[in-house]
Nucleic acid binder design. Structure first.
Lengths: 125, 125
DNA sequence: CTGCATCCCCACGGATACTG
DNA sequence: CAGTATCCGTGGGGATGCAG
C-alpha cells in the first residue's frame, strides 16, 4: 500500500480545511447545539471576532455549517452544523477520546525527553 | 454538557501538537512501516529536511515516535511509531475515511457557494 | 449584535549551505 | 546519509475601528 496519494491526498485536503487553529473547536461547539455568533465567542474565549467570522464563512462554504439570519432588532444570527458537519463529529469524537486517554502519557514523555536533553546540554558545557 | 474545558482543552492540546502541517502525514507514513529519514523525505515530497527533522523531534519528544541510530558508514537512522503513536492511527483512520467520503461533497458545496458569491458580487457592480 | 476593513507583527516554514 | 545553522519571505491571525 503506497501512501503517496491514497491516504495522503485526502488527509491533506481535510487538514488544509479544518486543520487550522479554530475550525475543529467551532465544529465541536456547534455539535452540542446551534449557537449565535456571540455565544461561540463566549464559548471559545480566545478567538477574535475576525477569526470567528472568517472560520464560520469557511465552514459554511465547505457545506459544514449553516447560517440563518433573523431580521430582528438588533439582528441575530444562528449557526448550526449541516449533516456533513454532524458526520465530522464522529471521527472528531474518536480524536477527543484518544486525546483524553493520552495527554498524560504525552506530557510525561515530553518531560522525560526534556530532562534527558537538559542533562546532555549541561554535559556539553 | 459544557464544553468550555471538557472537550476543548484536550482537543486543543492534541491539535497544538499534531495539528501542524506535517505531523499527521509523518505518523501515517510511519504507520505503514518503519522508515529511514530519506525514505520519509521521498514519501512526502514537499517536506524540507529542516521541517522533517523538527517534526520528527517533536514526535519523539511526545513519545509518539522512536529514533534508532545504526552506527554504520554512512550512518543510518530508523524511525518508527511507539505504542502511543500506533494508537493515534485509529482515530486518524476514522478521519481519513471521513475525508474520503466527504471531499467530493465539500468541493461541490464550495463550488456552489462561490458561484452564489460571484452572482452577488456582479449584482453589486 | 454581527461583521467587514485596515494595519501590523511574528513565527512557520522554505531555500541554501555547511558538518559529522 | 542525517542532520544543523542561517537567512528570509509569506501569511495567519491579533487589535482596533467603523458600519448595517
Amino acid at each position: 500500500m503506497e501512501n503517496t496519494c491514497t491516504e495522503q491526498c485526502s488527509v491533506r485536503g481535510v487538514l488544509d480545511r479544518i486543520g487550522d487553529k479554530w475550525s475543529i473547536l467551532i465544529v465541536i461547539t456547534l455539535g452540542q447545539r446551534e449557537h449565535r455568533f456571540s455565544e461561540i465567542l463566549r464559548t471559545i474565549p480566545d478567538i477574535s471576532r475576525r477569526m470567528l467570522t472568517q472560520t464560520l464563512r469557511d465552514l459554511e462554504r465547505d457545506g459544514m455549517a449553516l447560517r440563518q439570519v433573523f431580521p430582528t432588532r438588533p439582528p441575530s444570527v444562528e449557526y448550526q452544523l449541516t449533516d456533513m458537519g454532524e458526520s465530522l463529529l464522529t471521527p472528531l469524537v474518536s480524536l477527543i477520546a484518544w486525546a483524553d486517554e493520552n495527554v498524560a502519557r504525552a506530557e510525561q514523555a515530553r518531560a522525560a525527553y526534556d530532562a534527558r536533553s537538559a542533562v546532555g546540554a549541561s554535559r556539553r558545557l
